[in-house]
């Protein structure tokens, strides 16, 4: 069974590329365009990892992270923040909310796969 990764980003093209990258590596990918949509996907299905952008309309990545960490069925899901933000206070906030990793965009596909593979292999 391929591991499922939820990709949350408001950029369609970024989601597309990330999806192709991950699927190429053998993961199963589901997508959401913002935090709110991502929450709607936490419906009992198995999600092994969440890859989320930080800056999104409607609900940003940190709020999503906080919500995931409170969700009874998903609170231990590893969350990687995929973002261009490098500000330390944001990272700190992310860590406090329970994010695992911080992958700084732009990234090369191997970098992303590497980061994910440390948390879940395909």
């Amino acid at each position: 069974m391929a591991k499922t990764i939820l990709v949350v980003d408001d950029s369609t093209s970024l989601r597309l590329v990330v999806k192709m990258t991950l699927e190429g590596a053998g993961y199963h990918v589901i997508e959401a365009a913002d935090g709110q949509q991502a929450l709607a996907l936490l419906d009992g299905r198995k999600i092994h990892l969440v890859l989320s952008d930080l800056n999104m309309p409607v609900m940003n990545g940190l709020s999503l992270l906080a919500q995931i960490k409170q969700h009874p069925d998903y609170r231990f899901t590893p969350v990687i923040m995929l973002t261009t933000e490098t500000a330390e206070h944001l990272r700190q906030q992310g860590r406090e909310c329970g994010s695992c990793a911080w992958v700084v965009k732009p990234f090369e596909p191997p970098q992303l796969l590497d980061a994910i593979a440390r948390l879940i292999l395909p």
């Binding site: 391929a2 590596a25 053998g26 997508e31 959401a32 996907l41 593979a117």
Partner: peptide, 12 residues
Amino acid sequence: LPAGADHKTGRS
């Protein structure tokens, strides 16, 4: 990385 796995996903 077992490449080339083909997974149709339910796109939101």
